[in-house]
């Protein structure tokens, strides 16, 4: 994983694999602290420490590195990774990382993550909100709303993707996240 964007995409993939149909993401960035919360309605993993690399739900092999790597990325910068079960069904994952820390990973292209997610899993409803510190929560993506507005369920089209990319990127820049940061 070379940047936070890769990590984020990986968690979204976890949600999809867990059978989620709705995935909600909140991104926050202020005072150099990047916070991300992902809530889904997937089946989750019960009673096991998923940040242990030798715990995985996959069948192909016996190790799962996605969450252990994210934990390391967060904790290397005095951040954290917390995973909890939601009431009823679903899982919540929160992680925080200090982007000014010497061991921090660069953001990467975060807006692209959601465009790629829409492209990879068109049947999942993604909701993305962005807030900067105490500022208001700005919803930048709601794929269900796009589907309703367009009147059809397949939204894998370049013009829609460009539209989504633009509106997310604008909001990310507003709270101070840009892809250039830490890009070597």
């Amino acid at each position: 994983m070379k940047d936070l964007a890769d990590h984020l995409f990986d968690i979204l993939e976890n949600s999809v694999t867990a059978g989620a149909t709705e995935v909600k993401v909140i991104l926050d960035f202020h005072n150099n602290i990047f916070f991300c919360e992902i809530k889904d309605n997937g089946k989750g993993i019960e009673g096991e420490d998923v940040t242990d690399p030798f715990v995985t739900s996959r069948k192909e092999r016996k190790v799962g590195l996605g969450l252990p790597l994210l934990k390391k990325t967060a904790e290397n910068t005095d951040g954290f990774l917390r995973i909890s079960k939601l009431k009823g069904i679903g899982t919540s994952l929160k992680f925080e990382t200090d982007i000014s820390h010497i061991d921090a990973k660069p953001f990467g292209n975060l807006a692209k993550v959601f465009v790629d997610a829409m492209r990879s899993w068109p049947e999942i409803n993604f909701e993305v909100s962005i807030k900067g510190g105490k500022g208001k929560n700005e919803q930048v993506l709601n794929t269900k709303e796009i589907k309703d507005t367009m009147g059809f369920s397949d939204i894998r089209h370049k013009e829609i993707q460009d539209f989504v990319y633009k509106s997310i990127d604008k909001e990310l820049k507003r709270i101070g996240i840009n892809t250039q940061f830490g890009n070597f």
């Binding site: 709601n142 796009i146 507005t149 367009m150 013009e159 829609i160 539209f163 509106s167």
Partner: peptide, 14 residues
């Protein structure tokens, strides 16, 4: 989400 109008404009073409 802002600018849903913009989406509506591209609806037919898409």
């Amino acid at each position: 989400m802002e600018n849903l109008e913009e989406l509506k404009k591209m609806r037919e073409k898409v």
